[in-house]
Design a binder for these strands. Structure first.
Length: 495
RNA sequence: GCACCCGUAGCUCAGCUGGAUAGAGCGCUGCCCUCCGAAGGCAGAGGCCAGGGGUUCGAAUCCCUUCGGGUGCGCCA
């Protein structure tokens, strides 16, 4: 005993040697866990509105969600990657009208995009496509004739654009769910009827907000969900005074839909939606609670905004002018791996700066580079050994010294890191761990600079080289496994 | 006014399902480059973990509270 509640257990060197063998044997599967027990987890992320291409505001949520999905898979969950397409609100009508203008433009008109419509150039090719398909049939036709058609066509085209952007990041969702389809399938009515039967949906008016009262406040009767019964601060409207659904009204039914095929739900949201977390959690609890009164596990992970910098200077962006930085621009400039890794170098709920200059910097304070560099060094050892014409025997791992075994101990923590990252839904832990592991490996490498007898590659000693290469391989394997979870390629050479 | 997030080294941040002397990078100080890849390396200084209270054998970690930042706040999506 070493103090209360403490029992010191010292594993023998053999145990660590055995772990090293396990890393090399299990290779790409080392660190895979069964803690998920095959439970079905639905991870919904990105879900950007289909009104334009992906911009950098979407990027972090996309990467965090995707990496989280991978971590959970690695930990033994059955994961569904899902994207919710908001194709039912007034914004997609606005999109259709914007596309209609571009359609007229494609037929020769000179158009100006009025305030309130989407001015982006990305609608120009959509306009051309519509012109090609429909000729001048809808130029002067009343809106009712073309709105639905143009909406459908344009949303489909936008989703193609978004899927292409996501593919640049290596992100592919399993399921795309449509808000319009959730409504058309009668799921909203069904969900609201159920809740109404339980007294959780009712006609009523909301209390005016505390504090400063809005000028034009008038009590209005609408359809409300009793969110206060589940810890929210106020009941929340599911249908407006005119009877049309609110966003929340459909979202609630959508979550009920997801819950049908999943044991657990996770949403990845931008932090600007933090204010609506409680109501959706209340809704999921109400809709999924069984006889025990406990709903299905449902986490909402908030992802903070990313500030874009170039050489320390914030980049000016104006959404109105439509000159936002697109995701494609950034990926094309710095590469998928840099974007993905960097997005995971901070915990999701902390704000982050993304500096175009720093993320590609080849230095020790750039973990993207440092981890890649470690892997490249490990790969280079084999090339060097071959060049030196060495014939390596079966490694005798008992030749490794205490410093080298310390590296094995760190590598052997990988499964626990995966477990923690999965349990806490924090994929950034993988990135930090890889940074630590890479640093430890580099330190080991550097020992060889001070003392040549401690180099990994000892041309005159095949036995020790074989053992040390086995050690290096195990580190390389862990780096590959970790990077694979993050969706980052492991470089074999640095340029 | 209410809710949520945050407050850890000079700076940027890890650590938070409670556990042994609180970690990293930058910056700072001092050494080190005929040497497997020095696009660096080693060592050191630097912290009442915002303040206060509580739970516990034990708290940066959990609870309450104060202060200080950020965000959101009736039928927008």
């Amino acid at each position: 005993m070493a103090g209360p509640g403490f029992i010191n257990v010292r594993l023998t060197a053999d145990a660590w040697v055995e772990e090293l063998r396990a890393i090399l044997r299990d290779a790409g599967d080392y660190g895979r866990l069964t803690v998920g027990q095959g439970r079905r987890v639905n991870v919904e992320y990105v879900s950007a509105n289909p009104t334009g291409p992906m911009h950098m505001g979407h990027c972090r949520g996309a990467v965090v969600g995707d990496a989280l999905a991978s971590v959970l898979e690695y930990a033994g969950y059955a994961v569904t990657r899902e994207y919710y397409v908001n194709d039912a609100g007034s914004q997609v009508d606005t999109l259709a009208r914007s596309a209609h203008l571009r359609y007229r433009e494609a037929l020769g008109e000179t158009v100006t995009i009025p305030e309130g419509l989407y001015p982006g150039d990305y609608l120009v090719p959509i306009g051309r496509m519509l012109a090609k398909d429909y000729g001048d049939r809808y130029v002067t036709a009343p809106e009712a004739d073309w709105l639905e058609l143009f909406r459908t066509r344009t949303v489909a085209a936008m989703m193609d654009l978004i899927r292409a952007d996501l593919a640049l990041l290596g992100i592919h969702h399993d399921v795309f769910s449509s808000e319009a389809e959730v409504q058309a399938a009668g799921r909203v009515t069904a969900a609201l009827d159920r809740l109404r039967a339980d007294g959780l949906v009712y006609q009523g008016t909301l209390e005016p907000p505390k504090g400063e009262l809005p000028e034009d406040w008038e009590p209005v009767e609408m359809t409300l969900f009793r969110a206060t019964a589940f810890g929210d601060d106020s009941d929340r409207p599911v249908a407006k005074a005119d009877g049309s659904l609110t966003y929340f009204g459909t979202d609630l039914a959508y979550h009920a839909q997801k819950a049908e095929d999943a044991d657990e739900l996770i949403d990845i949201w931008g932090a600007d939606h933090a204010g609506t977390v409680k109501r959706i959690q209340a809704a999921v609890k109400a809709l999924t609670a069984g006889q025990d009164g406990i709903g299905k596990p449902f986490d909402v992970k908030l992802v903070q905004m990313v500030r874009l910098l170039r050489g320390g200077e914030p980049m000016k962006m104006s959404k109105r002018a439509g000159n936002f930085v697109t995701l494609a621009d950034v990926v094309n400039e710095v590469g998928k791996d840099v974007v993905r890794f960097t997005m995971l170098t901070r915990k999701a709920d902390a704000q982050m700066d993304f500096d175009f200059a720093k993320v590609v910097e080849a230095s020790k304070d750039n973990p993207v580079f440092y981890v890649q560099y470690a892997h490249a060094r490990i790969c280079s050892l084999h090339r060097k050994a071959v060049e030196a014409g060495m014939a390596l025997p079966q490694p005798d791992l008992s030749l490794l010294d205490a410093d080298e075994m310390a590296l094995v101990k760190l590598a052997a923590q990988f499964p626990r890191i995966v477990e923690g990252a999965a349990a806490n839904r924090e994929p950034h832990r993988i990135a930090f761990y890889l940074g630590d592991l890479a640093a430890a490996f580099h330190a080991g490498w550097n020992r060889g600079n001070d003392d040549p007898s401690r180099r990994f590659l000892m041309v005159n000693d095949a036995a020790i080289t074989a053992a040390r290469l086995a050690l290096a391989d195990s580190i390389g394997q862990i780096i590959r496994n970790g990077l694979a979870i993050m969706g980052v390629a492991a470089a074999e050479e640095m340029n």
